[in-house]
Amino acid sequence: MSAADVLETWQAELTQGRRRSPHTVRAYLAAASRLLASQNAADWARLARIDAPALRLHMARRRAEGIGNVSAARELSALKAFLAFARSKAGIADAAPPRLRGPRVKKGLPRPVTPDDAVNVADLVQANAAEDWIGARDRAVLLLMYGAGMRIAEALSLTAADLPLGERITITGKGGKQRVVPLIPVVRAAVEDYTRQCPWPLAGQTPLFRGAKGGQLSPGMVQKAMAQARAVLGLPASATPHALRHSFATHLLGAGADLRSLQELLGHASLGSTQIYTKVDAATLLDTYRNAHPREQD
C-alpha cells in the first residue's frame, strides 16, 4: 500500500461516509498527507502505532513552521480523526486516537454588519459588476446569506432543480444535516432577477449560480466582489460574506427570535454554537435591528 492509497481511502471515507464539505476534505487530506510524510508511514498498521508522543512531536514541528493556535487546533482535530480511522482499518478494537490536548483557542464574537450595510454591500456589488447578469448573481448570493442565513457553500450548492423558489427551501448543510429555511420576498426576487438574466441554461441538477464561463460559481469570486464593495463603503475587514450570516442570526435574535428556532435556522448541531450570539452587545442589537427582519417590508 502506498501513501496515495491511504489518502484515497481516507478521502472516500470523508466524502461518502462522513459527507464532509469539500473545504473540510481538502484540509483533512492535507493534514494526513503531512503526517504520512513526517512519520514515513504508508499503511494502516504503522499509522495505528502512532502514539501521543509521536503526534505531539509532529505538531511541535508544525508550530515551528509558524502555524497559529487556531490552525494547530484544527490540524490536530483532523489528525485525530485520521488516526482513529487508521486504527479501525488496522482492526484494532479500541479505535480511539492518541490522547493529546490541543492549544486553547479563544472564540471571538461574531461581528455583524448593520441591516443597511448588508443591503448596501449587495447593491454596490451588483452595480460594480462587469456584466448585469453577474451583478444580479452576486447580489442574489449575498442576500441568500443575509436574508436566509445560508453559508456561502450552501448558497452555491443550489441547483436549477430548486427553482422556482417558494416561501421556504430545504438546505443540506454540514454533515449532510437538512433544515428548512424561509425565504423572504426580497431574497426570492433577487434570485428571480438573476435567473432571468443568466445566459446559461438552468435545468435539472446544473448549478444555479454560474461562473462567467458557465461552470459552478466559486466562493472566491463572491468574496472578491464583496471585498471591493467593502472598501468603497469603508466597512471593516470583518465584513465578509460570512459576516452576512452572522448578521442574519444577530439581528433576528435581537428582534426576539428564540435560541432553539435560531439554531434550526442556522443548522447548528448544538445549541452552544448558537448561544454565542447572545453575547453580542444588546445596545448594538437595539440600534441596528428594531423590528423583525426589515427587508421583508421591501
Rank of each mutant, 00 (worst) to 15 (best):
P199G: 11
G166M: 06
M150I: 05
L252K: 08
E13W: 12
A3W: 12
N69E: 13
T15W: 09
A257W: 04
C198M: 04
I276F: 13
S38L: 10
S33R: 15
V125C: 00
M59P: 01
A212S: 12
G66R: 06
T195Y: 08
A148K: 03
K107P: 06
L253H: 02
L285R: 14
G256K: 12
L29R: 13
H293E: 03
L285M: 13
A237T: 14
A189M: 00
A189P: 00
A72W: 02
V222R: 01
P207I: 02
S88R: 15
A54G: 09
N291E: 15
H268W: 03
N120E: 14
G91T: 11
E65R: 12
A269F: 05
L163P: 01
S218R: 12
A31D: 15
A255I: 09
G204L: 02
I276H: 13
P201S: 03
F85G: 09
M59K: 02
G68F: 07
H242C: 00
D117C: 04
P207Q: 04
G17N: 09
L14G: 07
T206A: 15
T284P: 08
G272Y: 13
H268S: 02
Q228I: 14
R101T: 12
L163C: 03
T274F: 07
R20V: 10
R18A: 11
A72D: 05
S273K: 11
P53I: 06
L47A: 05
E167S: 05
T195I: 14
L29G: 10
R137W: 00
V121R: 01
G214W: 03
L286V: 14
A12G: 14
C198Q: 02
G215C: 05
T195K: 07
G66W: 05
A239V: 04
L144W: 02
L158G: 01
R63F: 09
P201D: 02
E13F: 10
E13P: 06
S273Q: 14
G66A: 06
K106D: 10
R137F: 00
L76D: 10
R26M: 10
I152Y: 00
I276W: 11
K224S: 12
M59R: 02
R20Y: 12
P22Y: 11
G68L: 10
A212P: 08
A283F: 11
A283Q: 15
G214V: 04
N128L: 11
A60F: 06
V180I: 10
Q216L: 09
A129S: 00
A95E: 13
S88Q: 15
Q178N: 15
K107D: 08
P112N: 07
D5W: 11
L156Q: 03
W10G: 04
A96T: 15
A225I: 05
L124K: 03
L286H: 15
T284E: 15
T240V: 07
